[in-house]
Design a binder for these strands. Structure first.
Length: 428
RNA sequence: UCCUCGGUAGCUCAACUGGCAGAGCGGGUGACUGUUAAUCAUCAGGUUGGGAGUUCAAGUCUCCCCCGAGGAGCCA
């Protein structure tokens, strides 16, 4: 039986397999905290109730030994999960060859990251991975409920989407290829084929960034919708975020508790999200004593400063065209601006969504491509979408790890992904 | 790439203006019938990241290198 199902079988005698997570002894009563991947549960070994052989085996049983416990499930308020297993018998299936390196005490981040494959077994990581899974599932459900089609973009690409300096280059037979920075360029043609589409996959950026918001490999959820303007995309992104939070609050209470997440801050996340323009954001920053000038992009400090004024995610729209990528639609009311938006998470987690209406005018797009110095032969296929039946369309990308970090209330995105890839760290 | 901080026992850290390298956890042994990072007793455990230099004496000071963290720029 799996630990997560124990509470439904109180009074029954069952066999549970798992690993020794922690143990305590009080002479003739011994306690083992068992984990099996679905949860943690206390096993009680009372001399006289458990078999003598089982009791003897439990003496100084090593951490992470894999054992099999036969026992009765009892309601017990003092135990984690509210139930415990009163052991009748205990068997050791596998003993560690060496002492398990990760203890219940504190460790440094270098050590933990080098032992990420083992670190995943700890309680915090267990909780984070389960919240990540819930968020992924919620996002898929959200799009399927709205009849979106999942179209995944290629990882190996001949071109760049977000600038050439941050590309990972790989050999592709006799050619050069790059790891994808975003699925968006491939999603726009898919939207012309299937209307409402989304992709969910990894993105790679060779940025030499060392901050709590950066990974070189991260996962993005990217929808692209035909006949939708940037306002529609703002609403879609807001609804998605609210949906993900509702699902985590509903299904992952135990995990939020393990992480000591301030749940009230999540419960405040409701529609609609506040919307301000880039220009208003500059004004707000200047009022707060920050010296960002019109025409400059926001850094981490600015994002935090802006989000502090709101208790829900903040939408900032219509940035200057000069600081944004070539594919964003020019604002017809002010050609200096583009019809884009970023969503800044509260509590200093930074930008979690970037989106825009896409440039649907063939000539304007061609002009942008030339201005950005992008090689024509790598993007001519992308121009075809405007050449053969252009259409109003919008989309956005949501950074999964930043979203998971925010909702989980953890400090750094590296804990929000099973095996983080950061600057200079490729192991394990 | 730049700035800042750090590297001492398996792990987390201490060691004053240079003067005998120490503690907790983990490990071994033992005690304890309700523990929650249990507690208590006891034992073992060290090429102080690497190299060079200054000095009677270097974990500590100087120089070079390696590794890590935090941040900036850029971004989700």
């Amino acid at each position: 039986m799996w630990i997560e199902d124990l509470k439904d079988h109180i009074g029954e005698v069952v066999t549970v397999k798992g690993w020794v997570f922690n143990r305590r002894s009080s002479g003739k009563v011994r306690f083992i905290i068992l984990r099996d991947g679905t949860g943690f549960s206390q096993v009680v070994l009372v001399k006289g109730i458990v078999s003598e052989e089982g009791f003897n085996l439990s003496h100084n049983i090593p951490y992470e030994a894999q054992i099999e416990v036969n026992g009765r499930i009892k309601e017990e308020s003092r135990a984690i999960g509210g139930v415990e297993i009163e052991a009748l018998d205990l068997k050791i299936v596998f003993l560690p060859h060496e002492e398990y390196p990760i203890s219940t005490k504190s460790h440094g981040i270098d050590f933990l990251l080098s032992h990420r494959h083992l670190w995943l077994r700890s309680r915090r990581q267990f909780a984070i991975m389960r919240i990540r899974n819930e968020i992924i599932k919620a996002a898929r459900d959200f799009f399927y409920e709205r009849k979106f089609i999942n179209i995944d973009s290629p990882i190996l690409t001949p071109t760049s989407c977000e600038g050439t300096t941050t590309l990972f280059e790989v050999n592709y037979f006799d050619e050069k290829a790059y790891l994808s920075q975003s699925g968006q360029l491939y999603l726009e043609p898919a939207a012309a084929a299937l209307g409402k589409v989304f992709c969910f996959g990894p993105a790679f950026r060779a940025e030499k960034s060392k901050t709590r918001r950066h990974l070189t490999e991260f996962w993005a959820i990217e929808p692209e919708v035909a006949f939708m303007d940037y306002k529609g995309a703002e609403e879609l992104a807001s609804s998605l975020i609210v949906y993900m939070i509702e699902r985590v609050l509903e299904n992952r209470q135990q995990e939020l508790e393990i992480l000591e997440r301030d749940v009230d801050a999540l419960k405040r996340i409701k529609l609609p999200f506040p919307v301000i323009s880039y220009e208003e954001a500059i004004g707000l920053l200047n009022k707060k004593g920050n010296g960002t000038k019109y025409g400059e992009d926001f850094g981490g400090d600015e994002e935090t400063l802006l989000s502090e004024s709101f208790d829900r995610p903040l939408i900032i729209e219509k940035y200057p065209k000069s600081i944004k990528p070539f594919y964003m639609k020019e604002d017809t009311e002010n050609p200096e601006l583009v019809l884009n938006f970023d969503i800044i998470a509260p509590e200093g987690y930074g930008e979690i969504v970037g989106g825009s209406q896409r440039e649907d005018d063939y000539d304007k797009l061609l002009e942008n491509i030339k201005e950005h110095g992008i090689e024509m032969d790598t993007v001519d296929w992308y121009l075809d979408i405007r050449k053969y039946g252009s259409f109003v369309h919008s989309g956005f990308g949501l950074g999964l790890e930043r979203t998971v970090a925010w909702i989980s209330g953890i400090h750094h995105v590296r804990e929000a992904i099973p095996y983080p890839r950061t600057l200079g760290r490729l192991y394990p």
